[in-house]
Design a protein around this nucleic acid. Structure first.
Length: 372
RNA sequence: GGAGAGGUUCCCGAGCGGCCAAAGGGGGCAGACUGUAAAUCUGUUGGCGAAGUCCUUCGAAGGUUCGAUCCCUUCCCUCUCCA
């Protein structure tokens, strides 16, 4: 079954509808990250009201706790959590990368030591497909190896072969009944030929969609876009393209311009908890002393609950006092900002004015004039 | 009135002859964060534009010493116990 319908294009930018088992999702879409089946500090109510219709959870984390079998017995992640929107699960590939000290990568799979209790687990592509089926994600991701930057050509090359082999095994392991979609993940580090090779091999396996992974791992920005450019035109236009783990608003702007349909990133939620707000004029660190007695909202004219109700001074106070409400309100603002931003991107594509939107946004965002 | 303990940089608190502008924590200030082991991490926190065999600082004033936050004397102030 088809995973996306493209409604309109503007240059390379695509405006479409992602077809999932839990609703049709307007693309380009940004998925807030909810690793453990919840976007930190949010309930479904706030997310839904802000227009979030799709989130990302993590199969590795849910496998360890509470357990994928348990979630299956509870009726799947949607029933278990009460989330009516769509959900994509990452396979745990990123954890192979980020929890590096606790792992050993083999051809057969990854030997992993749980960060929770130290227990040993052998994660294979087949197993992670099964885990994601148990969880009941609308979109599952293949197990992959996300290579760090910098990595040698030799290492990256072997890693791509491994990721490709794992993708083949994931493809073979999936059960064909049900509406869950499975995406392949293009790797290849920062070597164009490896990216091309990875893309070609995955495309030949006919996945429901394709992700570009292994980006934003510490490389210069230019390199990241080189890799996207290298691969984007190889991808079948009738399938969704997902840029994993990206990014900042300016990254979304660049990605959409290049034809990416889906993004996820921890940035809006984590930065919120750490005191950084997104504004049309760039990032704002609310801890800065100059906001101590600032009665204005974070963003003048912003319709989010936090901006409608609270001042910079008060939000700063909540953060400094380590009040839990701070996480809630800050996250609301940043997620709202992202949702509104994505809506604007989509409308710009519909209107055929993406280039203009791109220029205006960048000028404002890099101008940094929120402090008057 | 008697006995004892103590006063250290914004706060708490270590230091008890030079390696001390003074550990550590808190707080403050600033930075970072990109498929979340994140309610996290990093830097900085006396002055002098920077630097230093520089200046000021460890309750106050004297003293001993080449040298004192550290030893001595007196004073001021806190706290505890006894009366």
């Amino acid at each position: 079954m088809k995973a996306i319908e493209i409604l309109k294009t503007d240059g390379r930018a695509r405006r479409g509808t992602l077809l999932t088992g839990h609703g049709h999702i307007d693309t380009p879409v940004f998925m807030p990250v909810g690793t453990q089946g919840t976007v930190k500090a949010m309930t479904h109510k706030e997310l839904w009201e802000m227009g979030v219709r799709m989130t990302l959870a993590n199969a590795y984390h849910l496998y360890l706790r509470p357990g994928d079998e348990m979630i299956r017995r509870m009726g799947g992640i949607h029933e278990f959590s009460g989330w009516d929107g769509a959900m994509l699960t990452d396979s745990g590939g990123f954890q192979i990368f980020s929890l590096g000290v606790l792992r050993e990568i083999k051809e057969e799979g990854v030997l992993f030591q749980s960060h929770i209790d130290g227990s040993r687990h052998f994660l294979t592509p087949e197993k992670m497909v099964k885990v994601q089926e148990n969880i009941g994600a609308d979109i599952a991701m293949c197990l992959d190896e996300c290579v760090s930057y910098p990595s040698s050509y030799e290492y990256t090359s072997r890693s791509v072969d491994l990721t490709t082999d794992w993708a083949r095994r994931c493809r073979a392991a999936r059960s064909e009944e049900g509406s869950q979609k499975l995406f392949g993940i293009i790797q290849g580090g920062f070597y164009e030929d490896l990216r091309v090779k990875s893309a070609h091999e995955l495309i030949s396996m006919d996945f429901d969609g394709y992700a570009v992974g292994g980006l934003s791992v510490g490389e210069p920005k230019g390199l990241m876009w080189d890799m996207v450019d290298t691969v984007i035109d190889l991808l079948p236009p009738e399938k969704p393209r997902y840029m994993m783990g990206v990014g900042m608003p300016e990254d979304l702007l660049e990605g959409v311009k290049r034809g990416i349909d889906m993004f996820d990133c921890i940035i809006p939620t984590r930065l919120a908890r750490n005191g950084t707000f997104f504004t049309p004029a760039g990032k704002m660190n609310i801890r800065n002393a100059r906001f101590a007695e600032d009665k204005r909202p974070v963003v003048e004219g912003c319709s989010c609950y936090a901006c409608r109700t609270y001042s910079r001074a008060y939000l700063r106070h909540l953060l400094m006092a380590h009040e839990l409400t701070s996480f809630y309100l800050n996250t609301i603002h940043n997620v709202y900002f992202y949702m509104e931003f994505m809506g604007n991107l989509r409308r710009a594509i519909e209107a055929g004015t993406y280039d203009e939107f791109y220029r205006v946004f960048k000028r404002q965002y890099e101008g940094g004039e929120y402090d008057d």
